[in-house]
Computed example of a mutant assay.
Amino acid sequence: MQFSIGTKGWICDALVNMHDEDQPLATQLLYGESVEILSEIDDDGFVKVKNFYDGYEGFIKASSISLEERAKPTHFTNAIKTFIHHEPDVKTKPLSYLPFAVEITLTDRQENGFGYAQDLGWVYLKNLTPIDEPVTDFIETAKRFLNVPYLYGGRSMSGIDCSALVQLCLKTAGIKARRDAREQVLELGTLVTDNAPVDLTKIEFQKDDIIYFKGHVGMMVNDQDMIHANATAMCVSIDNLKEFVKNVNLPVTAVRRVK
């Protein structure tokens, strides 16, 4: 496969690991995400790319990139794991799967509660949401990931980190967010406070508030509790914000509001 620097392609595998000079797993790219080629293919078959969605740069396997023209996506996956079938039948062995928040192109073919996704196969329709109908309650979306393992750099049901949980849940709510917490805190929504360390007794927290720490982020489930992917529980969990801050000695540095 011949790549030219500056060429645009898209991810043709379900989930692709990206590494950089410092981290063996910097992030993961999802099926259908558009990338820009930034380098020639190296001797190990890797190429440097930039993810157009969030600007993240790193190295991925060149074989995971398609240079063919892709049809405009119509739906996104709303389940944390969606199987692709050869036939519109739940009893058939899945061909593959799609992670959460993957954008696909659904054709007019529908049968037995399945729809045919272009370039993929048959997908259960209840696992799909039209792109123009965002799921506004992103906290309920986040709860689907409860107990999913924590994985630094992870971006799927197999393992996810704190900023990816925020990014993907906001994505299906129609809100674009950067990949890392240090970038999100600078531009996401409206700033409530960044007077660090934030005095938690002086903030009237609301459901949907995004809570930032040094190197960490979570989302308020209500005025007291936060859902987050964390290395303390090693999974996605709901914790009382004040107790979490006290137990791990990690003060809040900023609060942002997206609603």
Rank of each mutant, 00 (worst) to 15 (best):
119 D>M: 10
222 N>C: 04
54 D>L: 07
193 T>P: 03
17 N>K: 13
18 M>K: 05
229 A>H: 07
85 H>D: 05
209 D>L: 02
30 L>T: 03
254 A>H: 04
169 C>P: 04
96 S>H: 11
253 T>M: 05
177 A>H: 05
218 G>V: 07
202 K>G: 14
90 V>G: 06
60 I>F: 02
152 Y>F: 14
71 A>K: 15
162 C>G: 04
52 F>L: 14
177 A>Q: 10
55 G>R: 05
56 Y>H: 12
224 Q>K: 15
111 E>A: 13
93 K>T: 15
9 G>V: 07
38 L>W: 03
65 I>V: 15
168 L>N: 01
175 I>F: 08
69 E>F: 11
212 Y>F: 15
17 N>C: 12
100 F>P: 00
209 D>F: 03
259 K>G: 06
103 E>L: 04
176 K>H: 10
248 V>D: 09
74 T>N: 12
36 E>F: 14
61 K>D: 12
84 I>W: 06
135 V>A: 01
170 L>Q: 01
34 S>I: 11
92 T>V: 13
10 W>P: 01
119 D>P: 00
166 V>S: 00
73 P>E: 07
84 I>Q: 03
133 E>R: 10
244 F>T: 02
84 I>M: 08
105 T>Q: 10
115 G>Q: 07
80 I>R: 09
146 L>I: 15
11 I>F: 14
223 D>H: 11
162 C>F: 03
47 V>Y: 02
43 D>P: 01
258 V>S: 02
85 H>S: 14
34 S>K: 10
120 L>Q: 03
148 V>C: 12
9 G>H: 06
225 D>Y: 00
